[in-house]
Design a protein around this nucleic acid. Structure first.
Lengths: 185, 185
DNA sequence: TGTGTATAGTTTAGATCCTAACTTTAGCTT
DNA sequence: AAGCTAAAGTTAGGATCTAAACTATACACA
């Protein structure tokens, strides 16, 4: 995660050039829609690169940071089962087993059998894991403040509201066979 | 890519619950900033899942779709070198070699040595590859229209403009050692 | 009890990616 | 021309992920 090739200055065309190229190759395109979608995708990619740099400088990976986040958000005493963690992060249980292996080795979490139900396993945040999360959180929120610095309070409000509305639309709607979103309401 | 665990309905807390949890665990947090950032990240993840379902139903992967996009956007005659493709997609040249292997085997692209400079290799879109791109493009833009359907023209304009401004900020600013964005202007 | 079934997690095999070393070609420099 | 250096791509080995088989535990019901 430290030196991903995605970090490199990547000879990408500007957003304007890219949209012009799409219009040239696909006449049916709505340039306004494409601008929103392309900007969204690229912004997200850049942000993940930035997060990756920050977590790497703290000696953890983005993957580990995700696990720390899930545990902290679950609230004290910061315990979850591997299966719940896997669902929460969109991973297979197998991948979670390995990820937890690594994090136990680094002292970020502990793994113990649940004595009241010996099929279950309890992953618990260590003090060190909680401290790492806090450091990463501070760095991330500083970066996020910088990113949004030029937006007026009104713009922030509109942006948050509109993005939330879009999110609700993807989360609530069920795509049909062709991938179109059909309203459930 | 077809049946990623990320596709599953993932027991994720609602955005509101998540922001409340962040505030509980990290008092310095600006809820408005967190709403924007969280909605952005989750929206992007859901959209990628949707794209993945669509490309899978066309018999290609999202990874292959990215290559097709880069080639089409480069314009006729739809040729690029593996190195340029790798930079464009944020992959290592090694990964691109393997990805092209697969796509050649599937008939989406051809790979030939450049006879005018025998160190170089030319990857060229096939007719079938171009057709696949067009199908995927139609599906994607349909989905994108559905997604933005509830946004007024004014909202679309503001959203596109604000996202573009944010993107410019990450692309132009150089993060310092702590990951903070410093203006270059 | 005993057995069937479901659940939780791990293990194994295969896929894709990254890092690093290597090969081939081109272009300088002397 | 000979050799140095840089550039483009491939190969080899390790890391992390998915899919599928497997193990262990718990619970229901005869």
């Amino acid at each position: 995660m430290a030196d991903n090739p995605a970090d490199a200055a990547d000879a990408e065309p500007t957003l304007e050039e890219q949209i012009a190229a799409y219009q040239r190759e696909f006449q049916d395109l709505d340039p306004q829609v494409e601008q929103i979608v392309s900007a969204l995708g690229r912004l997200n990619r850049r942000m993940n690169v930035a997060y990756g740099r920050q977590t790497a400088s703290l000696g953890i990976t983005n993957a580990e940071w995700e696990v720390l986040k899930a545990l902290v958000l679950s609230g004290a005493p910061y315990r979850m089962g591997p299966g719940d963690l896997a669902k929460r992060l969109g991973l297979t249980p197998a991948a979670m087993t390995h990820r937890i292996d690594r994090m136990v080795a680094e002292g970020l979490v502990t793994r113990d059998r649940d004595e009241s139900n010996r099929v279950r396993v309890i992953v618990e945040l260590t003090t060190e894991g909680r401290a790492k999360w806090l450091e990463a959180m501070r760095a991330a929120s500083g970066f996020e403040e910088d990113l949004l610095q030029d937006l007026s309070p009104e713009e922030r409000g509109v942006l948050g509201e509109v993005l939330t509305r879009l999110l609700r639309r993807v989360e609530d709607a069920q795509p049909d066979a062709g991938g179109r979103l059909t309203d459930l309401t």
